[in-house]
């Protein structure tokens, strides 16, 4: 991976990547921490929005853990993604309370409006549509989050209006 050293790994722009420096430092700090792999993966996910393979190679070197094991852990947890995500991540809660109040219909409507499968990102890279586990806001069911913002008591008719907020 020497050719990738400190270069942006999410595209082929060849620009230096400050994020990688931060990640490397974090890895180094966690070299001797017991159970350090998951915190490191959290940090990378937070920094890049997903787990780029090139960066995971640094983790493998830094923590002395084989790539197979890292993939084993990364693919086990829903929170980690091995694919890049869209600019806005729409997380439709599919907990039971939301489900019985029609979350499936809302998820389907988003999929139709965005022409994207659940779990995938739109071609323009603007939206990722996800069905998420219970967000614990059952009082507002059905709910979804986009970034930090929570939308509650939804109906299918709210979907186009919500998308318009982010399409501008």
């Amino acid at each position: 991976m020497s050719n990738m050293e400190n270069k942006c790994c999410c595209c082929n722009c060849g620009q230096p990547d400050e994020r990688l420096e931060k990640v490397k430092k974090f890895i180094n700090d966690h070299k001797d921490v017991k159970g350090g792999l998951i915190p490191v993966l959290h940090f990378i996910q937070e920094t890049y929005g997903y787990l780029p393979e090139d960066v995971l190679e640094h983790v493998s070197d830094g923590l002395n853990i084989p790539m197979t094991e890292i993939f084993g852990v990364a693919s086990f947890y829903h929170f980690f993604s091995l694919e890049p995500k869209g600019e806005h991540i729409i997380r439709v809660c599919m907990g039971t309370a939301c489900y019985v109040k029609g979350a499936q219909g809302i998820l389907d409507k988003f999929a139709r409006e965005l022409n994207v499968e659940v779990g995938k990102t739109t071609e323009d890279g603007k939206f990722t549509l996800e069905a998420t586990r219970c967000l614990g806001a059952c009082g507002l069911a059905p709910v979804l989050t986009i970034g930090e913002k929570v939308y509650g008591r939804l109906t299918v008719d709210d979907v186009p209006r919500i998308l318009d907020e982010y399409r501008k």
């Binding site: 017991k34 159970g35 792999l37 998951i38 993966l41 084993g72 852990v73 947890y77 980690f80």
Partner: peptide, 25 residues
């Protein structure tokens, strides 16, 4: 604090311990 990463099974004691240890839950 130790963060979970979205795996329901980690609510089970032994799985939770494996997760804190940094492995698959």
């Amino acid at each position: 604090l130790k963060y979970g990463a979205g795996a329901f099974i980690c609510g089970e004691e032994t799985a939770l311990i494996n997760s804190i240890e940094g492995g698959r839950g």
